[in-house]
Design a protein around this nucleic acid. Structure first.
Lengths: 123, 123
DNA sequence: ATAGGTGCAAACAGTTTGCATGTAT
DNA sequence: ATACATGCAAACTGTTTGCACCTAT
């Protein structure tokens, strides 16, 4: 992943436009606005390379759908709208997760998933 | 889902034996001990029916793999071992999740996923 | 006896890969 | 010029479905 192709630009631009975690399908649709004809295989290849380079982070949400977001945010979690299926960042954390870990287990990381309806869908 | 078939017995028995959330593949392997020749389609059909009847609950874990567990536990969360891939219940919760929800969003439920190594793999 | 369940194989959906062509350097 | 990236189509993997046969009731 070294060249600066139109396709790769369009993919990164999708994240700038959206400002929230995106699924593969969402990335495809947004990036095709900039780059018609962009193929799904190119999305998968670029996303995999970008995740490998730590230029994107994957957020695996239930339902078997992976979302991706740009790194550099501070520690945060995710809210999944059960109506529109969009995923949003939740900036706060501050919970004492360590109290949950069973004896003998070693905690590496944690994820908190919130489900409900987002601002637009709650109205 | 009304009949009490050998296959269905073997599937439910797998959960009794395991006492932890199981993936489709884990269910298949355990249930085939009791019922050789059991087909994967039967697992999917039974699991879907049992979840529909609230006789099983699905726990969607990252990586696109769904786990299933018996209901009736109190509110709890899950620990996923990054070494052996097994999923364990975490009985405690008691965190104040509501403080995380953004303004205008409506929270329906939450899931906390812990990742690390389990008791056996930490040794 | 018969409605519902099973196993197999085919169908599907999402993801990955091989290959000839295109393009950024 | 050339090595890397793309688009297409084929291959794969996990899940679902159609259908003839089987079995619990």
């Amino acid at each position: 992943m070294e060249r600066n192709t139109q396709q790769r630009q369009a993919i990164l631009n999708a994240f700038d436009k959206a400002e929230r975690p995106l699924s593969i399908q969402e990335i495809l649709e947004l990036a095709q606005d900039d780059c018609p004809g962009l193929g799904i295989a190119t999305i998968y290849r670029n996303i995999k390379a970008l995740v490998g380079d730590n230029k994107l982070i994957s957020v695996e949400m239930p339902g078997g759908v992976a979302y991706y977001e740009t790194p550099g945010h501070k520690h945060h979690h995710h809210f999944s709208c059960t109506n529109c299926q969009k995923v949003f960042d939740v900036e706060k954390c501050g919970l004492n997760i360590k109290t949950l870990v069973p004896d003998g287990f070693t905690l590496e990381r944690h994820e908190i998933l919130l489900y409900g309806t987002c601002g637009s869908c709650s109205r």
